[in-house]
Design a protein around this nucleic acid. Sequence first.
DNA 1: CCTCGAATGGCAAACGCTTGCCAGTGTGTT
DNA 2: AACACACTGGCAAGCGTTTGCCATTCGAGG
Lengths: 348, 348
Amino acid sequence: MRRPGNVPRDKVTISDVARRVGVATSTVSRALTRPGRVSEGLRERVIAAVAELGYHPNPQARSLTSGRTGCIALMVHDVVNPYYLGVIRGTQTQLRARGYRHLLVDLENSEDIENDALAELPASVDGLIAMGAHAPDELLVDIAQRVPLIVINREIEGVPSVVVDTPSALVEALEYVVSLGHRRIAYAAGPKPSWSSRMRWAAIEAASIRLGVECLRLGPFAPGGQSGAAAADAVLHSGVTACIFFNDMLAIGALKRFAAHGVSVPGDISIVGCDDIFGADFCNPPLTTIAAPTELVGRTATDMLLARLHETEHGMRPLPLRVKLPAPLVIRNSVTSARSEPPASPRP
Amino acid sequence: MRRPGNVPRDKVTISDVARRVGVATSTVSRALTRPGRVSEGLRERVIAAVAELGYHPNPQARSLTSGRTGCIALMVHDVVNPYYLGVIRGTQTQLRARGYRHLLVDLENSEDIENDALAELPASVDGLIAMGAHAPDELLVDIAQRVPLIVINREIEGVPSVVVDTPSALVEALEYVVSLGHRRIAYAAGPKPSWSSRMRWAAIEAASIRLGVECLRLGPFAPGGQSGAAAADAVLHSGVTACIFFNDMLAIGALKRFAAHGVSVPGDISIVGCDDIFGADFCNPPLTTIAAPTELVGRTATDMLLARLHETEHGMRPLPLRVKLPAPLVIRNSVTSARSEPPASPRP
DNA sequence: CCTCGAATGGCAAACGCTTGCCAGTGTGTT
DNA sequence: AACACACTGGCAAGCGTTTGCCATTCGAGG
C-alpha cells in the first residue's frame, strides 16, 4: 500500500472526488452525509471514488459550516484518580459507537483550570460532560443554555445529571457497621466544594441520628491518596471504632498509614470506602465499599447527551433530566465487629 | 442560508470586534495572533474590545485557514489500564501549559479501532502520540510523514520515540531473583504484537542464558486483569519457583488467583511485576516491580512533539529522535529466597 | 527635497465543506 | 392530457478566520 514516489499525498478534497465522479461537490457531500438524498447508484460511485482517492473529509471545514464539531468533552477533576477510569471508558465506548470524538479535559484538581475549560470548551465541542464540577450552579446553568451539558455526581436545577446513589448505600453501610456493634463512627469528608461529599455526609448524619449512634465528621480532605495519611491520623485521634471514607482513594491512603502505624484493620478499626475503584478488591485487607457503576455512569451520561443533541435536531420531546444509578454495598474484609473497648492508641 | 440549528444568535465574531475598534478584521486577527505586527496602542484597543464584547475566536474557522487545530491526540490501548494514567496526566499537563487541547483516544484493545483511529486522526489533529501501537511499522512511518508522530514504548526506524528501559531493569530483576536462589523461572508474556513484550522477553532470555538459569516463556496473555488467572495457572503448572510478569495488571491478576488457590506469595512462589501501576504498592503482598516513570514519559513525548511542531515552523535543527528513560527496580515483598525444593503442586 | 524602506493597516482571496433554493426529470393521479 | 409532486442533482452563498500582497504613512539618510 505504498504510494508512487513516496511523496506525501496532497490533500484530496471533496472537489477531487466530485471531479472524479463527474458531479458537483454538493452532491458528493450529500452522498456522504445525507443517505437517501441521492440515488443509490450515484452514492455507490461516490463511495468508490472516495475509497479510490483516499479521501477523508476535513473535520475543520465540516464543522465550520455545519456548526457541529463531532467532539464531546469530558471534564474530570483528576485523571489520576482511578475512579474516573470507568467513566472515561463508558463515555469513550458510547461516543465512538455514535461517531463522536472524545476530548478529555483533566482539571488537575484546579478550579482555575476548571474555569478556563468552562470558558473555552463550549466553542469547540458539541457537548460537555462535567464530572464533579466545583463551579457555582449559576455558571453551569448558564453554560447549559449555550451547549448541551450533562453533569455527573451533582444535581442542579435545570441541568440534566446522572448521579450515583451512594448516599443510600452509605446508609446501608452505616447500618451494617452499627449492626456489628460500632457506636462511635467517623466520616472522613471529601473536598469542601464537593456536592457528593455533602450529600454523603447529609445521609450519614441523618442515619446516625436515626440509629442513635455518634458520628463525627472529619476533614475535609483532598481526595488524593496522600490525604489518606492525614485522614488516618484524624481517625486515630478521634477515638472512633469505625470510619466511613469519602472515597476509596482516601481509604486506601489511610490503610497504608494504619499499616505503617501498626494499627490493624479491621482488628483495631473498621473502615468502609466508597466507589470500589481499581485496587479496592486487592488491597490489604480488601475494602468493604460502595460499588459505583462507573462505566454505566459514563454510558448513561453520554446517551443522555447524545439524545439531547438529536432532540434539538428532530424536535423530539424533552428527555429525562435526572438519572440516579444504584450502587451496591460490597462487603469485603475491612469491617468487623466492634471490640468491647475502644482501640488502643497507635503502637510504634 | 439560515444558521443551522437554533443556536442563539449571540455569537460574537471577529468582524464585530473589528467594527467596534474601527479597523479591518485582518487587523484584529493580527493583533490577536501576531504580536509585533501591529502597533502597541492598536493592540490594546483590540484587546479591550475583545474583553468588552466577550469575543472568543471560533476554533473551527481558525483551524480551517491556519491548518492548525491546537489539538493533540493521545492513543492508548486501554484506558482502563492504570498504567496509562500517569502518561495521560503527563501529556495533559504539558499540553495545557502550551495551549494545546488533548484528544484522548481509547483503542479498547481493538486493532480495528486502532486502524480507524490511525486513518481518521491525522486530519483532525496537529500531532499524534501513540502508545503501544500494534500497527505495522510501515503504517506508522507513513503516518509520521503526514503528521508529527511520537510513539511510546516502541522503536521504529524513522519515527521519534520515547521508551522506558524496562529491559535493563528486568535483567536486574532477574539477577536479583537468581541471587535469591531461584533456578527455574518463567516470564509471563504480554500480547503477541506488543513491542514491549518482545523486548522484555529478549532481555530476560539473554540474561537467563548468561546466568545459566532456566527461563520459560509463558503466554502470550492479554494485558488485562482477567488474564492474570490464566497466567497464574500456567505458572503453577510450569513448576517454576519465580515468575516475572509482563506487567503489573497481569501480576496482580495472578496474585488474586494464587490467593484463591491458597498458593502463598512469596512463600510458594516469587513474582515480579512491571510498571509499578497504581495498586502495586498496596496489593497483598506489595509487588516487587519495575517503576516506569509514566508521567515523565508523557511529558517527554509531549515536549518532543511540540518541539517538532515548532521545528517545522521555525526551521530549527532536528531534535532527538529517541529517548530512553530509565526505570528503577523497586523491591517490595513479592520475592523471597527459593526454597530448597520446588513448590508443591496447586492445592485445592 | 527626494528617495527608500520599515511600520502599519486594509483588501480580498482562500480554507473545504454544507445547505437553502432552484431546475430538470420522471411517475402517478385525475 | 394535464397536473402534482417526489426525486435528483447543481448553483452558489456562506461559515469565521488567516494571510499574501498592496497602499499609505512617516522618519531618516542622501
